[in-house]
Computed example of a mutant assay.
Amino acid sequence: MNSDMQSAQKEISSFTGSLLRENFGKGPESVFVQMAGKYLTIYIRNFLSPIEKVLQQQDQDLIIDEMRQKLMYALIHDIRAFINAVTGVQIEHIYYDWNMTNRSGMIFAIGNEIFYDTVVVDNYHGKEEVEQKISTLSKEAEKTPEKITSFQMNSRTIAVIRTGILVRIEKEIIRYGKETLLKVIKRSLEKGYLHNSTNFEAILDKKVHDIFVDWDFELDESTIVIITEA
């Protein structure tokens, strides 16, 4: 592994953990940073603040999600700037999601250039089947995406980018300034489909630990990150 990249990964991991600790009152147990091509993932594990733990015990995951959304709006700017300062790569788009059941989270960033001459694996095992399954699930939830691109970042991480997924009523909801509400609804709906599907494990021939999804409504784009066993 490139020593400069390894150093950058450690710095970003440490910064992210400290930033979450300062703003949530408790930091994650671990933060893993991966770079491949122009993509960067920050995988956060065992992260739940004391007040969130109480809310979770009361089945108030939606309140936790709303709280994190508001805080992350502010923190994402700092994370984006830090990645740029450490790597020299400007972040064009950034996505994030949480899995409250697993107490995990994912930040998925897209840079304007490749990180440290790294590459993604385009022809990974099960690629066509994964994209077909995503297309089918997307159609069940809203509509068939106009375009689906997927690739493997490492032995545990597969990223899927969907373009052209919003239906007319969703665009109207966005026009009325209800993006946050729409995202909460779509996340609940889509993650229900994604997590209820055991096909990914059969397709990839390995256990799936986490699935994260987020949207950029302005771009009409969505990302899905699948974390598997190695």
Rank of each mutant, 00 (worst) to 15 (best):
residue 146 E to C: 03
residue 163 T to R: 14
residue 141 A to S: 11
residue 178 K to P: 04
residue 167 V to D: 13
residue 131 E to T: 13
residue 143 K to Q: 10
residue 195 H to M: 06
residue 137 L to E: 02
residue 180 T to Y: 08
residue 170 E to C: 09
residue 189 L to Q: 12
residue 180 T to E: 15
residue 146 E to T: 08
residue 132 Q to V: 06
residue 158 I to P: 01
residue 169 I to V: 14
residue 187 R to S: 10
residue 125 H to I: 10
residue 164 G to F: 01
residue 174 I to P: 06
residue 153 M to I: 04
residue 164 G to K: 05
residue 146 E to A: 06
residue 152 Q to I: 04
residue 180 T to H: 11
residue 189 L to H: 11
residue 144 T to P: 00
residue 136 T to Q: 10
residue 138 S to C: 06
residue 123 N to A: 12
residue 151 F to D: 02
residue 130 V to L: 05
residue 157 T to K: 02
residue 160 V to R: 00
residue 133 K to H: 07
residue 143 K to C: 06
residue 184 V to L: 15
residue 185 I to S: 12
residue 159 A to H: 01
residue 186 K to R: 15
residue 129 E to F: 08
residue 182 L to S: 08
residue 136 T to L: 09
residue 137 L to Y: 07
residue 134 I to E: 00
residue 192 G to R: 10
residue 172 E to C: 05
residue 197 S to P: 01
residue 163 T to P: 03
residue 194 L to W: 02
residue 196 N to I: 00
residue 139 K to R: 11
residue 147 K to F: 10
residue 173 I to N: 06
residue 139 K to S: 11
residue 163 T to K: 15
residue 181 L to A: 12
residue 159 A to Y: 01
residue 188 S to V: 06
residue 127 K to D: 04
residue 189 L to D: 09
residue 183 K to C: 04
residue 198 T to V: 07
residue 170 E to P: 11
residue 163 T to I: 12
residue 138 S to I: 07
residue 195 H to N: 12
residue 165 I to T: 12
residue 133 K to A: 06
residue 145 P to L: 01
residue 146 E to G: 12
residue 135 S to V: 06
residue 183 K to R: 15
residue 133 K to F: 00
residue 162 R to Y: 05
residue 133 K to T: 13
residue 130 V to P: 00
residue 142 E to C: 07
residue 164 G to E: 03
residue 149 T to G: 03
residue 199 N to C: 04
residue 134 I to A: 02
residue 145 P to C: 02
residue 125 H to S: 12
residue 133 K to S: 07
residue 179 E to A: 12
residue 172 E to V: 13
residue 131 E to Y: 05
residue 189 L to A: 12
residue 195 H to T: 05
residue 193 Y to R: 04
residue 143 K to R: 13
residue 142 E to S: 11
residue 129 E to I: 05
residue 177 G to W: 08
residue 145 P to D: 04
residue 171 K to P: 09
